[in-house]
């Protein structure tokens, strides 16, 4: 008599376990929620910059130079009378474009180099020596050296930082490939006569996605900082372009009397980098629980 009723709740339980509601993931990993929210906010600011009560960020007006923050100029004005609020809001575009582009480009190129090095054994020694050599030049210095060769532009900044970040991804992918090659299921696939492209797509790539996603967020954060540093020291995007590093560079001479010029871009940069780092930490915890336990 009781037998027919029993399976029902059981089926419910299985259903609940197999499809956890989305909310519980975010609750379990609050840093993904906070980081993701802050990053989405910054993306919103960057995309809708013209609609957010901004004026032309490059409009010069000598009559209203170095004003302190007020109702009219929310973040004050700089030494050329440009509205800092507008410049900071538009500056989000440069930071996000540089961060995302470098993360994607260096991941793709690093993945290709790592796979090549992990599978083509005769080339491994040469490729790794070159990677070692590149890694023995501190990334910021490498980016500075590359920027010294070209004109300052957003594209060149992205390329310079990408070159500096590629070795990290290549090394990571290579180490994943080398450890996976020893796994029984990969050996089984090889002995079954599977070709290299199939092994890469079926067995290697799925295993690199988690560590690479985490790595990509850290590279994104690092790229944003390096972009700001390059612009700050005058080797980044052209001075006319509103970028957080540029605004700070312009405020440098006046920071003791007008600290607000440096303060606002610094605040936005810190929040954005914090958001990306929180997202990275949360993704690492959820994608790679073994690593999360140790760090």
């Amino acid at each position: 008599m009781t037998a027919p009723a029993a399976p029902l709740p059981l089926a419910d339980e299985i259903g609940a376990a197999a499809k956890p509601p989305r909310r519980s993931y975010l609750r379990k990993h609050p840093s993904v929620a906070i980081g993701g929210f802050l990053l989405l906010l910054m993306i919103f600011i960057a995309v809708f910059a013209p609609l957010l009560f901004t004026v032309d960020p490059t409009a010069i007006a000598t009559s209203r130079r170095t004003r302190v923050p007020s109702e009219l100029y929310w973040f004050g004005t700089d030494m050329l009378g440009r509205d800092i609020y507008s410049r900071v809001v538009y500056g989000a575009r440069v930071s996000l474009i540089v961060g995302f582009s470098v993360a994607i480009l260096s991941s793709v190129i690093g993945l290709a180099i790592g796979l090549f090095s992990g599978f083509v054994r005769w080339a491994d020694g040469i490729v790794m020596r070159v990677i070692d050599g590149m890694m023995s030049i501190p990334p910021i210095l490498l980016a500075i050296a590359l920027m010294a060769l070209t004109r300052g532009s957003v594209g060149n900044v992205i390329l310079a930082i990408t070159v500096a970040e590629i070795p990290r991804v290549a090394r990571l992918v290579r180490s994943v490939v080398l450890s996976l090659r020893e796994q029984p299921y990969v050996e089984a696939a090889i002995s079954n006569g599977a070709r290299v492209p199939r092994i890469i797509i079926k067995h290697i790539l799925p295993n690199t996605i988690a560590p690479m996603t985490v790595q990509a967020t850290y590279i994104c954060a690092s790229a944003m900082i390096i972009e700001a540093i390059l612009s700050f020291i005058g080797a980044g995007v052209p001075p006319a372009t509103p970028s957080w590093g540029n605004i700070m560079a312009e405020g440098r001479a006046l920071w003791q009397v007008r600290p607000h010029i440096v303060f606002f871009p610094a605040l936005f940069l810190s929040i954005t980098v914090l958001a990306v780092n929180l997202l990275g930490d949360g993704l690492r915890d959820s994608l790679d629980p073994r690593l999360a336990k140790s760090i």
Partner: peptide, 9 residues
């Protein structure tokens, strides 16, 4: 986390 996120300048 703070130390990693706030740029040196």
């Amino acid at each position: 986390v703070f130390g990693f996120s706030v740029p040196v300048f």
